[in-house]
Amino acid sequence: MNIFVCVKQVPDTETKITPTGDGSFIETASIKWIMNPYDEFAVEQALLIKQSNPAANVTVLRVGSVKDTEALRTAMAMGADDAALVEAADNLDSYSIAKALKGAIDKTGKKPDLILAGKQAIDDDALQVPQILAQMLNLPSVSVIVGFEQAGNNVKVKREVEGGALEVYELSTPCVLACNKGLNTPRYASLPGIMKAKKKPMAQYSLADVGVSDADRRVKYSGFRLPPEKPPGKKFDATDAAKQKDVVSQVVGLLRTEAKVI
């Protein structure tokens, strides 16, 4: 059984983001990279499946810069068997990334039985790659899964919807599943795991190797800037009972005209 897990390397949540001087991207030199937290659930799910099915092979895939291979090394230290990296700029769009992932899967020569990913990457929050990849591979796909069960050749997954209700899907494999928090508790990479990971194979491809060119770009970034600083909150004094009516209508008015939330 071949399980592929797509992982993205994103800036640590504690990293301070600054746009480059020309506003074309963000400063990457001083960033501490981590595995996208939602992808950790995907890696963990793959490893749980491998635990009950030792013949399973878990390959982690990543598209991005080679400077730092933190995310792939972490996944292998957690227990993934091997990795493939497609070297690319860190600001590729979702379509190109999905196409590169498909190309990388083809390159490995392994027929996928299951493809797992995080439901979204916490850097650009696009929530697109797993679905585009599924479309390209012509495979069924469910996103935001919080439950997973194997049922013979099929899988049964639970998906969270508005209001906390759960939808249950049964899919035939191969399929693409995008994982959400709550699916499992990702393990730490152990120290022996870190040592073993050094010896695990990591294939490396160029975008050309996996058939992706600039013509595949569907989205181009026109600029990066920080959101405007939040103005300080407004305080309303309503301790005087006589004035409360006025204060309330003032607040309601501002919510309509300024905040435009009602």
Partner: peptide, 14 residues
Amino acid sequence: PEQREIRELALKFA
């Protein structure tokens, strides 16, 4: 790089 990873793991644990 390996020492950095070890340190990161310990820090994450901490």
